[in-house]
Simulated assay, not measured.
Amino acid sequence: MRSIKKIHKAISAPIGNLITYRALPTPSIDIDGLDPFLFLNHHGPQKYPARNSGLPFGPHPHRGFETVTFILEGDIMHQDTGGHQSTIKAGGIQWMTAGRGLVHAEVSSEAFKANGGDMEILQLWVNLPARYKMTEPNYIGLQKEDIPEVTLDEGKVTLNVISGRWQDVQAPISSLTDIKLSTVYFKAGGKFNAQIPAEHTIFLYVVRGEISVNNQSVTKLNLVEFNPDGEDLHLEATTDSVILFGHAQPYNEPVVAYGPFVMNSEKEIQEAYQDYQQGKFGVWQD
């Protein structure tokens, strides 16, 4: 079995009145500690009242990586300077390839701001290798019904196939670097087994509940870091649980991150700021 190197507790990092836990990076793991997975913010869970101001993520730039946003509760209205716009509801995801650069906003819909409701969102940043840093930006928004489900262990486990492939089920998203990502829902006692290439980085974050990971208990708001020493992964839910699960071949390249940009050198970060200031990421249309 793949051995666990360390379990990292997400830290409280509220954004105004938005409950936020940052699982990566934290004081115990650097931004390049799970190459190519860079960053994870867990927003919520919380209940918004009627006539609220919604999510605070107005227009801001990105370059050099991809954002994958998982809407567990509530909704997100996306808009970017590449001309993409959509509102994704609970159970859906947004996959944005920032590439050479664009400006986007992720805010709540007018209906959510008027009526309120439950909100819980995960945002994961996935690095791009040097050869794709300046690729053309792209955006894919998928509703819950667009994402195939695989039912395992006599209905006790449901795996949402978001990118890559699970057994004979192909995900709707084929990432540039064959990154595999899924959300997995467990009923208490549910078991999930997988074989992951030993050289791959595994990303496993417990969103809700408690699970046994290769015979070690992991509770909610914890990120598991593995050693590259085995292929077998055995998960069993102690309670009803949800995890964010993925794996990928590491890039083994320098990571230089500053604000909304992730590149391979300080020079490239400076160029990103210059290009953004010169309007090369596109012009925001309200």
Rank of each mutant, 00 (worst) to 15 (best):
107 V>F: 00
265 S>P: 11
115 N>V: 03
12 S>K: 13
177 T>G: 08
266 E>Y: 14
283 V>A: 13
247 H>A: 02
279 G>N: 09
248 A>N: 00
168 D>V: 11
91 G>W: 10
106 E>V: 04
69 T>R: 05
74 G>Y: 10
125 W>F: 10
226 F>E: 01
20 T>G: 01
282 G>I: 02
100 R>L: 03
96 M>K: 01
231 E>L: 03
248 A>M: 08
207 V>E: 08
15 I>R: 07
54 G>T: 08
75 D>P: 05
113 K>L: 03
136 E>C: 00
147 I>G: 02
236 E>T: 15
90 A>T: 10
235 L>G: 07
135 T>K: 01
15 I>P: 00
50 A>K: 15
255 V>R: 07
255 V>K: 03
191 K>T: 14
277 Q>V: 02
18 L>G: 02
198 A>S: 15
133 K>D: 09
266 E>G: 05
283 V>G: 02
191 K>V: 15
235 L>P: 06
25 P>D: 07
211 I>C: 14
200 H>D: 15
265 S>D: 05
172 P>A: 02
23 A>S: 14
95 W>R: 04
97 T>R: 01
25 P>T: 06
233 L>Q: 08
179 I>F: 14
286 D>Q: 12
83 G>T: 00
79 Q>G: 06
181 L>N: 10
144 K>N: 14
41 N>M: 11
206 V>M: 14
112 F>A: 02
250 P>M: 02
247 H>D: 03
49 P>V: 03
75 D>E: 07
204 L>K: 06
261 F>P: 06
260 P>F: 13
